[in-house]
Simulated scan of single mutants.
Amino acid sequence: MSGTFSSNARNLEFGAPPPGVPACQGLDPEIFHPNPSDANRDPSPAERAALAVCEVCSVRDWCLERDMQECSTDRRISGVRGGLREADRRALHVQRFGRRPARRKAEAGR
């Protein structure tokens, strides 16, 4: 991948990417970080705009899988990636990997 990708795509680089060009190439990465909606509500208009970009993306599955592997905990997930909004990716992450316990304050300072 070249440096012409949005930071959203560039941050997801790992291994050999599949053929195709991410639909987010050249777009403002801020559109992929809208205010998240509640999991029990429909996506917000801003989330729908980002999801529409992902829907036509030829590397959407790769992007989602990379995000799942990259995030060590569901609390690190933010924005829209791989065709799923934040709430849906968090639920998928917990389904796949379980929920990691929060770090205690004493451990966080080490």
Rank of each mutant, 00 (worst) to 15 (best):
R99K: 14
D38H: 11
T73H: 15
S7N: 05
P45V: 03
P45Y: 04
E107N: 10
P17R: 10
L92Y: 01
F5V: 08
A52S: 06
S44E: 02
S58I: 03
N35A: 15
R85A: 03
V56Y: 05
P29T: 15
S7H: 04
V94F: 03
V80H: 00
A91R: 04
C71N: 15
P17E: 10
W62R: 07
C57V: 06
R48S: 03
G3L: 12
D67S: 14
Q95G: 13
A106S: 14
I77R: 00
N11A: 13
Q95V: 07
G83S: 02
N8T: 07
E86R: 01
R60N: 15
R66M: 15
R48P: 00
S37T: 12
R41T: 11
C54K: 04
E107M: 11
Q25V: 13
G3H: 11
F14T: 07
L84F: 03
V53L: 04
P19Q: 08
L12W: 00
R60T: 14
R104I: 11
P22L: 06
A50I: 00
L92S: 00
P17Y: 07
L51A: 03
G79N: 07
G82Y: 08
G3W: 08
M1W: 10
P22V: 05
R76D: 14
D67W: 06
G26S: 04
W62C: 08
E86L: 00
R90Q: 06
P36G: 03
D74Q: 13
D74N: 13
P43W: 03
R110K: 12
R104C: 09
A108T: 12
R103I: 13
P19E: 14
G82I: 08
A23N: 06
S78R: 11
D67T: 14
S2Q: 03
A23D: 05
V53F: 04
R104G: 12
N40Q: 09
E55R: 12
I77E: 00
C57H: 06
D61A: 13
C63F: 08
P19R: 10
G79P: 05
G98D: 11
